[in-house]
Amino acid sequence: MASIELDIWRGEWGLASIDLECLKVLTYMKFIGVPVRVREVSNPFFTPKGTLPVMKDGRTVLTNFEEVVDYLKSLNYSTDVHLNQKQAAEASAFTQYLRDKLYPAYQYVWWVDEKNYGDVTRPTYAKALQIPFNFYYPSKYQGAAKEMIDALYGEYADLKEVEKTIYNEAEKCLKTLSDRLGESEYFFGNRPSSFDAIVFAYLAPLVKTPFPNATLSNHVKGIANLSRFVARISQKNFRNVTDEYNRQNKKQSQGTQSERDAQFPNAARNKLLAAIFAALAMTGYAVATGMFQDMKDFQHSQDYREMFENEEDDN
Score class of each variant (00 low, 15 high):
Gly290Lys: 00
Asp294Lys: 00
Gly33Trp: 08
Tyr156Cys: 03
Gln96Glu: 12
Thr95His: 01
Leu152Tyr: 11
Gln254Phe: 00
Asp19Ala: 14
Gly182Leu: 06
Thr165Tyr: 02
Asp297Arg: 08
Val68Phe: 01
Ser178Met: 04
Lys56Asn: 07
Gly33Ser: 11
Phe65Trp: 09
Leu83Ser: 06
Pro210Gln: 06
Gln87Lys: 09
Tyr245Ser: 06
Ile18His: 08
Asn116Ser: 04
Ile223Glu: 05
Leu52Ile: 15
Ile8Phe: 03
Lys115Phe: 00
Ser17Lys: 03
Glu114Leu: 12
Leu23Tyr: 01
Leu181Gly: 09
Ala144Arg: 12
Thr209Met: 00
Asn218Val: 07
Leu98Glu: 02
Ser193Met: 12
Val241Arg: 11
Glu163Arg: 15
Asp19His: 13
Val241Tyr: 09
Gln130Glu: 14
Met1Ser: 12
Val81Ser: 15
Glu183Ala: 14
Ala204Cys: 08
Arg37His: 09
Ala274Phe: 10
Asn249Asp: 15
Ser92Ile: 03
Val68Cys: 08
Lys251Ser: 03
Asp261Ile: 11
Gly189His: 15
Asn266Ser: 09
His82Thr: 05
Asn43Met: 12
Ile149Thr: 13
Lys296Tyr: 13
Val36Met: 04
Asp7Ala: 06
Ala128Val: 01
Ala224Tyr: 12
Thr124Pro: 04
Ala267Trp: 15
Tyr285Met: 05
Phe200His: 07
Glu183Asp: 14
Ala214Glu: 13
Ser253Phe: 07
Thr283Met: 13
Tyr77Trp: 14
Ala88Tyr: 09
Val207Gly: 07
Pro265Asp: 01
Arg191Pro: 00
Gln299Asp: 08
Lys146Leu: 11
Arg122Asn: 05
Glu147Met: 11
Met29Gln: 15
Tyr28Arg: 11
Ala288Pro: 00
Asn168Glu: 15
Ile166Asn: 03
Thr256Asn: 11
Phe264Pro: 00
Asn270Tyr: 07
Tyr106Ile: 03
Ala126Val: 00
Gly154Tyr: 07
Arg247Tyr: 11
Ala275Gly: 01
Tyr71His: 14
Glu309Met: 11
Asp119Tyr: 04
Lys208Thr: 03
Lys160Val: 02
Val69Gln: 13
Asn190Tyr: 02
Lys164Gly: 01
Lys236Gln: 14
Leu174Trp: 11
Thr165Met: 02
